[in-house]
Design a protein around this nucleic acid. Sequence first.
DNA 1: ACCTGAACACCGTTCAAGT
DNA 2: ACCTGAACACCGTTCAAGT
Lengths: 241, 241
Amino acid sequence: MVAPSPFQRRPVQSRRGGPTKSPLSRDAIVTEALRQLTKFGLAGMSLRKVAAALDTGPASIYVYVDDLEELYALMLDRALASVELGGAHKATWRERVRRVLESYARVLAAGPGLAELALGTVAVGPNALRITERLLELLEEGGVELATGAWAVDLLVLYVTAVVAEHANGLDPAAPDGAVSRAIAGASARDYPRVHAARALLLSGSPEERFTWALDVFLAGILQTPRTARAGASKPAKRKP
Amino acid sequence: MVAPSPFQRRPVQSRRGGPTKSPLSRDAIVTEALRQLTKFGLAGMSLRKVAAALDTGPASIYVYVDDLEELYALMLDRALASVELGGAHKATWRERVRRVLESYARVLAAGPGLAELALGTVAVGPNALRITERLLELLEEGGVELATGAWAVDLLVLYVTAVVAEHANGLDPAAPDGAVSRAIAGASARDYPRVHAARALLLSGSPEERFTWALDVFLAGILQTPRTARAGASKPAKRKP
DNA sequence: ACCTGAACACCGTTCAAGT
DNA sequence: ACCTGAACACCGTTCAAGT
């Protein structure tokens, strides 16, 4: 017996309604939670506040949602619905991979909290699957074998999520007053000669520039590192002789 | 006026001591917090529990630490002290980069919570700087220019942190009973043909195999994608004609 | 100056009733 | 069956005193 996924569960018949209160529903809960999340960040959202906004007590939420973690998963997938996968365009497959990931990044960066939530939550809803499907398709178009593509999609999505989350946490390396800047600026030339020498470089570049560069790194690396033995690997594996 | 970094602050003279209570200290607080973190995970650690273990009330902690976030930063840097940077060996620079990152990954994976903490905390203590310094050195040895290396180190460390955190959160893609496995196994061939076709591949590979593969991807990509215009870029930038 | 108990303003989750 | 107020067992942080 396996617990059913939260994405496919018997609907619940609300008993509220009429003129005073709109009926509760999983949808309404997710919508309100997402509103709070994107407006106030992860710490600014809570089950209790969602319940209060929906004019009920905290216990009522549990009729529609098992726990906070499940709510997170539902929220994330709802948000991922607006990621644009692009149609059949004339752009290169690389360009189209970039666009999908940029759209994904933009969705996560829409407000504080979403990216943070994405890092701690496994995205396995239908919309996450749609994104995975699309990226596999584009990589296939680029000649990446399925075995390699399967791992590559993981890598790409994880990286983008982490970058946006780091950034959204106010850890913007570019922020000149942040802890990062101060630490790097304060690194002594004696103890950390390279950090010191590279201090301007470490803090340079807009998020977009870094993102674009990172994608180039990934795609170049992926094309050159198939999982199946093949010509082109820069360094033969040499594990089993 | 800039607030001083928590890593360089006037020490506090404890007034406890004698036979009954060992004196409070920032060190003792960090040690106990780290013990709780690696034993019980991030959710299993709290300022109140640390205070209780140190035989005092929660308010006492605030004499040594500004807030929870600062404590997190101190804990992370303390943990990073045990990352092995390796000496001058005969191994390739690539191999040595791999070893440093593997050591970093192993330290974060030592117990639940540490990697999770690392994702939400900017690592800017002396030990984080040591690691950055070392990686810059190794990349330099590999012929990577400083401008490229500066961004590359960020990329590498962020990825490794994210992988370990994802893994430590029980989101192990390999776990056959996890939400990930169920979602992928349940992806219909009609709606998600490639996810369906790749379902075994998406779940395949030990964490170590994936890690090793990802590093190969990164290093191959980094070598091929210098930030300064140079021969070898697989696709000319063509932004300013 | 260090140290602390008590209070403040919150959490997620469960229980026991209501309809 | 849905819905809910109240209770339970927690949080981080601040205040106002103690030494």
